[in-house]
Nucleic acid binder design. Structure first.
Lengths: 195, 195
DNA sequence: CGTTATGTACACCAATCAGTGTGCTTAACC
DNA sequence: GGTTAAGCACACTGATTGGTGTACATAACG
């Protein structure tokens, strides 16, 4: 009569709690927003006891901050490092990535979402968002420099703004705006990089 | 000992309840976000009894929707109608407006905020946001046509995206991004309008 | 083996929130 | 002056929330 078998595959959900919590966070915070995701629901999805969750993250805010930090490694994964593309092509390829799937509506950059949902500008997660956005702009500027742009910093900042605009607008209009952003990017890149 | 004098100027707060509620909504929803503004606080600021508030708006969602509808009249006030500017100048002037004040940080377009905070895509306020954004793009397109742009609809959509990008990015970075957007706009307008 | 992390179950707390019920007061209008 | 609509005070409900306390179970490791 032992209650050993509880997990989905008959296994005890055991050891990997922290990972499951973070993974559930990514899913739920993205789908429902941070504010509309309760810790109870999150624990249920992660198949983790509430107590365990609070042993890993002493506060919801802490979990949110760690959830955002998790994206850092992926900084536009495989785009900046793709050596099969010229620097110029890489600058434009950024705008193809975010289109994840046809049924995955309103993806919305998690950092923008966090910056809107968390009103306190001092919130550590807001800082995380700030740093990430600056990092993206910096990588874009690096690539722009590599491509021989006249003012790489400016072009990097401009392209970053286009990304954010596409993300926000996609959310509000419920329709892809990255194509428009890509078209603008093409104009800017052409104008900034002498051939 | 009658409790007549309660309002700020010794007047009873009386008759104008609905207006005060809407006005408090604009202030609080903008400053704190919709989700972080409770009806109790809102009523306190509006100097309105809770009962009265619920006689005007049977639900918080209804109030939110009405709050968003209120912006429609102001569609970028005084910019599109400013006949002292050429159409081309009007297209660029749009990017000067949003800078309200130096201490008024993170203004963030209320429609983007609403679209992020309200997860349900069916929410009437989301629809309101959608319509407003489309309206802005349409007015921009009209002005672009007036200015003789080759593809007015495209230019309108592009400029609208720049506005949203600047709003979102200003929020995340806590620093003005409209100057960057204006620079991009200048490039696009120059490229699209034959001289 | 025994110890030590790690995880679990479940009840519980205090706070907050949207929304109501009730009875009373006041201003506006005829 | 009397009716009516608008507003008010205030207590209250029911649900949800973030977070704890407690006692127990199990897996890993030496």
């Amino acid at each position: 009569m032992t209650e050993l078998e509880k997990g989905p595959q008959g296994r005890r959900r055991g050891r990997g709690a922290r990972e499951r919590i973070l993974s559930a966070s990514q899913q739920l915070f993205r789908e429902q927003g941070i504010g509309h995701t309760g810790m109870d629901q999150l624990c249920a999805v992660a198949q983790v006891s509430k107590r365990t969750a609070y042993q890993h993250f002493s506060t919801k805010d802490e979990l949110v901050t760690e959830y955002l930090r998790r994206f850092d490694p992926d900084v536009l994964p495989g785009v900046f490092d793709n050596s099969e593309l010229t620097p110029r092509e890489r600058l434009l390829a950024v705008f193809d990535v975010p289109t994840t799937g046809p049924d995955d509506l309103t993806p919305l950059c998690p950092y923008i979402a966090a910056a809107v949902e968390l009103n306190d500008p001092q919130h550590p997660a807001r800082r995380q968002a700030h740093d990430y956005k600056r990092a993206i702009a910096a990588r874009l500027a690096d690539t722009a420099r590599e491509a021989g742009a006249a003012d790489p910093e400016q072009l990097g900042e401009q392209l970053a703004l286009l990304l954010d605009g596409a993300a926000a607008r996609t959310r509000v209009l419920n329709a892809d705006a990255f194509r428009t952003a890509a078209a603008i990017a093409a104009v800017l890149v052409d104008a900034a990089i002498p051939r």
